[in-house]
Design a protein around this nucleic acid. Sequence first.
DNA 1: GCAAAAGTGTTTCCCCTACACCCATGG
DNA 2: CCATGGGTGTAGGGGAAACACTTTTGC
Lengths: 363, 363
Amino acid sequence: MTNPSATPADSQFPANFHVAVDIVALTIKRGLLQVAVVQRQGPESCISVDGGPARLTARSSHDYALPGGHVHWQSESLKEAAQRELFEETHIEVSLDDLEQIGAYGDPGRDPRPGRTISIAYVAFHPEFSSPFAGSDATNAKFMDVIDLLAEPNKLEFDHRTILRDAITKVRDLMERTPIALKFCQETFTLLELRNVYEVMFHRAYNADRSDAKTQRDAERIRRFDQTQGDSPLKKVIDQFSLLSFNNETRSEQGFASRPKGLASNRQASSEYAVVDKIQKLLTDEFRKPSGDRPVFKNSFDPANFLRKATAIEGFLEPINGRTQIGPSGTGKPAQVYRRGKAKRLDPPLIVERKPSSKPKTR
Amino acid sequence: MTNPSATPADSQFPANFHVAVDIVALTIKRGLLQVAVVQRQGPESCISVDGGPARLTARSSHDYALPGGHVHWQSESLKEAAQRELFEETHIEVSLDDLEQIGAYGDPGRDPRPGRTISIAYVAFHPEFSSPFAGSDATNAKFMDVIDLLAEPNKLEFDHRTILRDAITKVRDLMERTPIALKFCQETFTLLELRNVYEVMFHRAYNADRSDAKTQRDAERIRRFDQTQGDSPLKKVIDQFSLLSFNNETRSEQGFASRPKGLASNRQASSEYAVVDKIQKLLTDEFRKPSGDRPVFKNSFDPANFLRKATAIEGFLEPINGRTQIGPSGTGKPAQVYRRGKAKRLDPPLIVERKPSSKPKTR
DNA sequence: GCAAAAGTGTTTCCCCTACACCCATGG
DNA sequence: CCATGGGTGTAGGGGAAACACTTTTGC
C-alpha cells in the first residue's frame, strides 16, 4: 500500500476518505433467511431505482439499510469495527471469528452524499443472536426476510442489495468447505437439524439470477401466515418448537425436537401443530420425493445420501454413542445424535451445487 | 455505509484514512508464473520476519513490494485507481475488465508508518503486458518469479505475501468459471496452448499449503538456466518461440508454434532447441505419463480429456473450419485451431481440482 | 398393528479416467 | 517408412442418486 516513490504520500494525497464497514447479519427463522436491517433517520434516503445509481430521494417507510458505520481511526481493525458497529446499531453480539469479509465497495457515486466513503462489507451468519435488540437504543433495527429485500422494487439503500447478494454467495461457499452450519445446531444435534440449515441457505429463492414464481408464492404464504397470526399462542409454539427457530434459551435440552407433550394430546393444539409442520416443510417439500410419484426435482438433499455425504467428511461430525433423539413428529425411529467434530475445514467439501447437467452435449 | 444515526458522521469521525490500492500483475513467462514488483526507495523497508507484524527495518536489496498507491479522492473508482497506479509504477496497461478485486486489507499495524492505510487489492492476470516498462520512469519495477517470492525467507513488504497468495487463489477460481485463460492465447490458438496456461497456473508449486521439494528443485533448475544464459542468442530463441512466451509482437502468425525453419536444419541450433523443449516440459512433465511406465500422478490435464472437457463447454471455444496448425516439434498431426467463443462464463465450469480421493473412507 | 421417521443395503446409471488406436504430417 | 504429436473410441471403475427395505419409536 502506499506510493513507493520517495515523496511522502501523505502530503500529496490528503487523507479525506471515510472508511466504513457494513455488516450482513444473516440468520434463519422459521425456515426463512433473515437479515438485520436498520432504518436510518432524516428526511432523505439514498436508494437506487431501476438499477441506476443511488440518489437522494424522499425517505419512504420502506427504506432499509444494512447496519454499519465508520471505522475508528487507528484504534481498531476492520473486523473489530464491524463487530462494534453491529452491536451499536442492533445490539447483536458476534465474535470476531464469526465475521467474514465479503469485499470492498468504494466507487464514487455509491453514496450520493458529500465526501467519499469506502465500505468494507462483512457477513455474520449466526443463529438467533442472543436477546437481539434487548435494552438497546437501536429501536430502528429489526430482522427482515431476505426474500422480501431481494424482491422488486428495491428497498435497500446504497448498494446494499449487491452486498446482500454477495453475502449469500459467501456463506454458501463457507458452508461447503467449513463447519459453519454447525453454529445453527446446538451442542448435540441430529442430522435432520443440520440438513435443514443447508436446505434453507441453498434454497434457490435466494439465488441471484432467478427467483422463480413458485418459490415466491411459497414464501408469500408463509409471510401472510406470520402476519395474520400476530401474537397468537400458536406463534409462540412455532417460535419455541419449530425446527428452525433455534432459540437456545427457550428450547429445553431434550424437548427440542419433540412435539410438546401437552399439546400433542390436545386435539385443537394438535391441529395447530400441523401448521407448524406445514411451515417447516414449505421450503423443503420440493426437495423431497412426491409420495408415490416420479421425482420431479433432482437435489442433493436426499436425507439418506445427505447423511452419507456428511458423515464421510472426516472430523465434521462425531456420533455420540448410545444417545439418540426422537424426531419432530414425536414418532419414528430416534435419530443418532452428533457432536461437532474437530475439523476446521471440510475435506472433501460438502458440495451442494447441482451439476450443470451436461445437456449441451446432446445437441 | 456511514452511520445511520442522525449525527453527521463527518464531524464525529474525522476522515483521516489513507485509502490505497495494491495490484498483483500476474503473467506467465517461459512456463513460470511471474508477478510485477517494485523496489521502494528510502532507507527503511516494512518487512515481516517469521510471520510477525511488518516492522521498519534497514532496507535490503532483496525487499520488494507490489505496485500500488493512493486512490485519488473523489475522482476515480477503486478499479480506476488500480489501473492508474499500475501504469504509473510499472507502465503496464490493463483494461478495467482485466482487474478483479481480491479484498480489503486494512488492519492497523500492517503498515508500521504513521497514519492508517486501508488497501484494496486487485489482481490483473495478463500475458506479456505490452512493452513493459518501456520509456518508463519506473526503473524500480520488474517481473519476478512467484515461486521465489513465496519461498522463505519472506521478501515482500507489508502483507503483500498474503495478498499474492490470495491473488493466485482468485485467478484459479476465475480460470475454472470464466474464459480468462484465453487472454494468454492469440486470436487463434490450439488446445495445447490453452492447456499449458492451465497447467502453469494450477501447478502445486503455487499452492499456499505445500510447496514440495521436487517442484522447488524443478523451478530452481529453470531459474539457474535463465541466469547463466543471460542474453545469449538461445535466450532470444526461447523468448520468441517457446510455447509460453506468448509475445504477440515477436511471434509471426503461422510460425508461432513451429520450430523455426532456419534453426531446425542447423545442427547446433537444433540441439539448443532441445533445451527449449526441456524447459517447456519441466513443469508439465509430471502431469504426463512417464513413457512406458505406470502413471505416477493423477491429474486433470490429460490432453485427450482436457480437450473433451474444454470443448464440451458451450461458447468457450469455436473451432475454425479447415485451419490447423503444426505442433511445436514441427511434426505430428496438425492441431485444430480455435477461436474464442462468445461465452462470458464457463458452464459447466472447467474443474481442474483433483478430487480429494475419498481415501479416508477406507479406514 | 400401524404410521412415521431414521438409517442401511443395493442397484443403477453416468461420468471420468485411462488406454488403445487411428490420423496426419515431416523427414 | 518411421517418428511424432493430435484426436477418437471405448472399456472399466467409482461415486452419487434412487429406491427398497429394516429398525425403532408413539399411539
